[in-house]
Design a protein around this nucleic acid. Structure first.
Length: 345
DNA sequence: AATTCGGGGTG
DNA sequence: CACCCAGAATT
């Protein structure tokens, strides 16, 4: 039957071309994989490149080798370890999920049960079920959507086309080696069936690809136009005293939720003056920090002051010498760098 | 169905 | 510069 032959073709390609990753077993190797490591890697890989996630995976598995160890960690330690990786709701859900799994005595073994865990959606549930538990669950990520859209020349633009693409992916998913198959399609999308300039000459599915036959693979997947990103403005305050700097913990939900940060204004559509935590003779960094979030660009003014004593204000005073270990997300890490430029204070 | 969530790499 | 990346939760 054609479905199984398609799976055999890409599995043969995968056996010869699989990328090596710390959480991945060799293709075809009949050895169990640790569901904890599979789950951890999949959460880190949500909207995140393999290159970015890999050092964080090594750090997390080094600090917390088991899901029980992670479940016992302090919230602040996990948030700090995640700093820089982005989408910080993932870190909060990661800890909630680890605690739920430890409480119930281990990871559930089915896609349906995995789907009930915090931070585990359709993609991650299917990925863990297929890779760790050998369940033939359809794994659909951005790579799979692109591959399917080209294979079947799907004309429905994303995101409306997701259902159709998922149906194609499900129909192709084999019962044999479903985990390797899922990773094979994702590797294909990452290395051959790329968004631009796909290397169709090296593709095991070239002979069955409708977009290749039509000569326009790069046309797929079709996408609905997205809204333009507005620019927002804000101010971060660097308050230095006795070799320490004032840091705050941001509220648990929302932008950079739960992360350590410099005190900062709201990020508004127009520049707003004032609102500093203390009244002082502020120096303004010459160039604001420009930072691109998913749905807006931020222009962040950085104001700095050095005081003789620590004022009584909300927050925690952190030694400036160890600011690298404070767990600041990238935006505030860059704001701190700007404030520490020589001769500002 | 549309928004809200980071950050960096790539063409 | 725009686009993309092993998406999920919320509204």
């Amino acid at each position: 039957m054609p479905v199984d032959s398609a799976a055999r073709e890409i599995l043969a390609w995968y056996d010869a071309n699989a990328r090596a990753m710390p959480w991945r077993r060799a293709p075809g190797a009949n050895v169990p994989v640790d569901p904890y490591r599979v789950w951890l890697s999949e959460v880190m890989l949500q909207q995140t490149t393999v290159a970015m996630a890999t050092p964080y995976f090594e750090k997390f598995t080094g600090m917390w080798p088991t899901v029980e160890a992670l479940a016992s960690a302090e919230d602040a330690a996990v948030m700090s370890a995640w700093a820089g990786l982005g989408y910080y709701a993932r870190a909060r859900n990661l800890l909630a999920c680890a605690r739920a799994v430890a409480e119930r005595g281990g990871f559930p073994g089915s896609e349906a049960e995995l789907l009930t865990l915090p931070g585990v959606g359709p993609y991650t549930a299917a990925a863990v079920a297929s890779i760790a538990f050998d369940e033939a669950a359809p794994v659909v990520d951005g790579n799979v959507e692109r591959v399917m859209s080209r294979l079947f020349a799907v004309e429905t633009p994303l995101p409306a086309g997701k259902r159709e693409l998922r149906a194609h992916a499900a129909a192709l998913t084999p019962t044999m080696r479903p985990g390797d198959y899922a990773q094979a399609v994702m590797d294909l999308g990452a290395t051959i069936c790329t968004p631009k300039k796909p290397r169709c000459g090296a593709c095991p599915w070239q002979g069955r690809c409708a977009a290749f036959a039509a000569g326009n693979p790069e046309r797929y997947p079709l996408k609905a136009p997205r809204a333009a990103r507005p620019t927002r403005y804000g101010t971060a305050w660097w308050i230095e005293a006795e070799g320490h700097v004032l840091l705050v913990r941001r509220p648990p939900k929302g932008l950079l939720g739960g992360m350590v940060a410099l005190p900062a204004s709201e990020f508004a559509l127009e520049r707003v003056e004032g609102g500093a935590p203390v009244e002082a003779a502020w120096s303004r960094v010459p160039e604001p920090v420009r930072h691109a979030f998913t749905h807006f660009d931020l222009v962040l003014d950085v104001a700095a002051v050095r005081l003789p004593r620590r004022p009584d204000v909300e927050g925690e005073w952190h030694p400036i010498a160890t600011i690298d270990a404070a767990g600041l997300p990238t935006l505030f890490r860059r704001a701190a760098d700007a404030a520490m430029t020589p001769c500002l204070l």
